[in-house]
């Protein structure tokens, strides 16, 4: 379904103007972005949000807790140790 639809999207964009496919897609998006009014504010919010999330929160506050271990076997060892040590002794 999706590949068919994507093909249709490309063909339709080709029919719209007699330009090369990548150029037509590029123009479609460029014209869309240029004609935005409220959309520009929304895009600004999205970009700021993504910047905060990926450039501040993720590296400084949300490093992978298991990222400090090298390779799968070290991670397995750590997690199994955690799961075993936290159990309640009979």
């Amino acid at each position: 379904m999706l590949p068919i639809y994507s093909s249709y999207l490309i063909i339709t964009l080709c029919i719209m103007k007699k330009e090369s496919i990548p150029l037509r897609i590029f123009h479609f998006y460029m014209e869309g972005f240029r004609s935005m009014t409220l959309g520009k504010t929304l895009w600004m919010i999205i970009i700021i949000k993504l910047f905060i999330m990926f450039c501040i929160l993720k590296p400084f506050f949300f490093p992978s807790h298991l990222g400090k271990f090298k390779g799968e076997s070290e991670k397995q060892e750590y997690v199994s140790g955690e799961l075993i040590q936290r159990a309640i002794t009979p």
């Binding site: 999330m53 929160l57 993720k58 506050f61 949300f62 490093p63 992978s64 807790h65 298991l66 990222g67 991670k75 397995q76 997690v79 955690e82 799961l83």
Partner: peptide
Amino acid sequence: ILEFEFGTNWSNYSWF
């Protein structure tokens, strides 16, 4: 952000 939290705050769970 929920996925960030899985990796940082719930790492045993994420691995498991």
